[in-house]
Design a protein around this nucleic acid. Structure first.
Lengths: 233, 233
DNA sequence: CCCCGAGTTTGCGCCAGCGCAAATTCTGCC
DNA sequence: GGCAGAATTTGCGCTGGCGCAAACTCGGGG
């Protein structure tokens, strides 16, 4: 595995700032695994044993309420670190991580975190920076949910997905993993019905094209306008 | 200042795990200041020059939308660290911090963070743990805003305030800083009108007592029921 | 190639909670 | 002690978006 992963890994921002030797050392203490679509990498409330880096695929981070409703906290893309509960002093995972497509993942036992963070300060710093970004993103989301209408929130969510994981095709920017109306609803705090109505409307107007578990943004600019305008639909 | 602050500080959880000598050293690099009620410790989007520990008072962390609407991200209580943007790799503050009452604050230049975190690992670890807690709280808030009704959210917010900053009085648990209906609305994503109606209803039922910028929780148990029950008011 | 079931669309009725507006009550300051 | 302004309360009408239900569509497995 080492050789294969080395070439993949040296490209990832998370490992910039480490020498090839250091990268090798880091990798030596990791374990690589595959997860089939729709299987869980870890489950909410269970003992946090490891932290992870996504090598290939897309992961959905989901929180479930006591009465069973689900909310999508975020999507993880290639190269991102996730499940860092332990580095933040938690002993259990606050959410579940589910493979949105077949995934390849590196895992380190949490017990190694303090040592790794000490030995590779750049690695620790990047991780904390990531956490900082996520905290800010999450707060932005609270802000959006407090002040925006559903239409704007869905527009924002699509734009974010397009930026984060969009793949340029001839027809526009396609979100490159299967995403249902229900998923979008769980990202924006609404219902799949409302999302469906919005997407239909936008498709009529040529702003997007969408199909079963698939969305392509054709006209990001008009979507930005929708996301920002409080009035008028 | 040193002598005064030392006795105050050694009680704070943030400084547990440090020897008296280390505490003194940490303090030596800090600057202490007072902030009058309603003045800003730092402002959103401005250059992050320092991080802070609240010695006395209460601080409101506020994010403002491009069109001027405000959302309260959280309240900071005595002993908490805040404005740690730099430790998370940001160069500007993502929110403003405003004194909810007259406050005393310690400030360290951000430039010292790396050195301090290295020299006092317990201090760094506690800080990151705090950040982890806040990330989780913020995500919980997203979850609440996605799945709960306004009444439940307001009940949750009051319970959290009562827990975090509640002062036991003969009449119940009093939130010990001035908080308006507007503030509660900005914490829960609703309007001051709706908050006012809810508080009136709860006061009729003897669950709380409230006045101008003041709320006292008389019957936390019934508030918990309200916070958890999706149906029936 | 057909069928099954998950995912999606769409119609309809309703209501929680917002927006607006006006009245009322504090409270700190002069 | 009274006044001006801020905070709060309350009424009223409206509507965005949810809940329910039914129809439809598509893609993959048999």
């Amino acid at each position: 595995m080492a050789a294969l992963d080395r070439s993949l890994i040296s490209r990832l921002p998370l490992f910039r700032g480490l020498t090839p030797d250091e990268q090798s050392e880091l990798l030596r203490s990791a374990r690589s695994s595959r997860y089939a679509k729709d299987t869980a990498i870890f489950e909410q409330e269970t003992d946090a044993h490891s932290f992870f880096v996504l090598i290939a695929g897309h992961i959905r981070v989901v929180r479930t309420t006591p009465d069973g409703q689900q909310v999508i906290a975020r999507y993880i893309s290639e190269g991102e670190i996730f499940g860092v509960a332990a580095a933040l002093g938690r002993t259990t995972y606050p959410a579940s991580a589910v493979a949105a497509v077949d995934c390849v993942v590196l895992a380190w036992p949490n017990a190694l975190w303090p040592e790794l963070a000490r030995r590779f300060p750049a690695f620790g710093a990047t991780t904390y920076k990531t956490v900082g970004n996520r905290l800010q993103e999450t707060q932005t989301r609270v802000m959006e949910m407090s002040t925006e209408q559903v239409e704007q929130r869905v527009a924002h969510a699509l734009l974010r997905l397009a930026n984060q994981t969009g793949r340029k095709t001839d027809g526009g920017i396609e979100i490159d993993f299967p995403i249902s109306r229900q998923d979008i609803a769980e990202m924006t705090g609404t219902t799949l019905h409302t999302v469906s109505r919005l997407l239909s409307k936008w498709e009529e107007r040529g702003i997007i094209v969408s199909g079963r578990q698939k969305v392509t943004v054709k006209d990001p600019h008009r979507l930005v306008v929708l996301a920002e305008n409080r009035d008028k639909g």
